[in-house]
Computed example of a mutant assay.
Amino acid sequence: MFKPEINFEVPLLPIVGDGFCFPYLVNLTVKRKILGLSQLNIHVLDDTGTSLLQGDGKLWHLRKKKRIIAHPDGLPLLTLREKTLSWRNTWKVYRAESSDINDLLYTVKRSSTFQMKMQLDVFLASNINGELCDFHVKGSFTNQSFKVYKGDTLIAEVKERFKLGSFFKGRENFEVRVYPGVDYAFIVSILIVYNEIYGES
């Protein structure tokens, strides 16, 4: 795949951490698989096939959903928690396995209660009550593909690689393009929330 030259002058955009930001275009493959009747598993690979992140969670939950994103060795990196009784399908993302407000990194929610388009707004912890979101996600009605913006600047693209056979086996694959300096762990978490909210659409 095409990669631009390394540019060490590109500003970093670390949301989860500096270690997930690189001064070049990052291409990822995200594989989502349903295991049995209740469990789901997520693997994030770079373009050489190296495992970068993994995720898991229960497919169904009576109260609210929770997803864990971990390092390849299983050490928890992020916990994504669905807010109960939320009109805008709100998810909160915390460091490690926390649910403490002091460990909140950002909140992801549908842009409006009644939507004509598949869109999400992302608010950093320092901007929870802000009127303007820090990041905006614009999706497609035809599949699980979307783009992530900071203001008017495109920072990441996600494309679903749909295969009918894989779909019926409970498998989904996504191509993720993360632009230079952008935190790829942050973008992966957006993909997981987007899939949770719009995956049944």
Rank of each mutant, 00 (worst) to 15 (best):
I192Y: 07
I155F: 02
L191A: 04
L25T: 08
G199R: 08
L52W: 09
Y106K: 13
S201N: 14
L45A: 08
S111V: 15
C133E: 06
Y198K: 11
G36F: 02
T29F: 04
G55P: 08
H136S: 04
V30K: 01
L164Y: 13
Q144W: 09
G19P: 04
E9S: 07
I42P: 13
V148H: 02
N27I: 05
I187V: 15
E9C: 07
G181V: 14
T107P: 12
C21W: 00
A156Y: 01
R161T: 13
Y24F: 07
L59C: 08
S140K: 10
P180F: 09
G17P: 00
F168R: 15
L25W: 05
F174T: 10
Y149P: 00
D152W: 11
R81D: 00
S98C: 06
G139F: 03
L40E: 15
N173S: 15
K83T: 01
T107F: 06
N127S: 06
S145M: 04
V137S: 00
V10H: 13
G49M: 11
L35Q: 04
R95E: 03
Q39F: 05
L120T: 08
V137K: 01
Y198R: 14
M1C: 14
L124K: 11
H71Q: 08
V16K: 06
G74F: 15
V137I: 01
K147S: 04
L37N: 12
E172S: 09
P14M: 04
S111H: 11
I68A: 07
N127D: 02
E160M: 05
N102S: 12
P23V: 03
R63W: 10
H136Q: 12
K147Y: 03
V176E: 09
K169M: 06
T153V: 02
V26F: 02
L25D: 13
T29W: 02
G17V: 00
C21A: 00
I190D: 05
S112H: 07
A185I: 12
K159H: 02
F114E: 15
D103A: 00
K3Y: 08
G181K: 09
D183M: 07
S112L: 09
P76E: 03
L37F: 07
F162W: 10
R161Y: 04
N102E: 13
K33D: 11
Q144I: 03
F8K: 12
G49F: 07
G57K: 03
G139S: 04
H71I: 03
M1E: 14
L62S: 11
E131F: 05
L124F: 08
R67D: 15
E97Y: 10
N127L: 05
D100K: 06
L37H: 04
F186L: 11
G55V: 06
S111E: 15
S189E: 13
Y106W: 09
Y198I: 13
M118E: 13
V44M: 03
P23N: 00
E172Y: 05
I192T: 06
Y24G: 06
D152A: 05
S140M: 06
I68Y: 12
G139Q: 06
E157A: 01
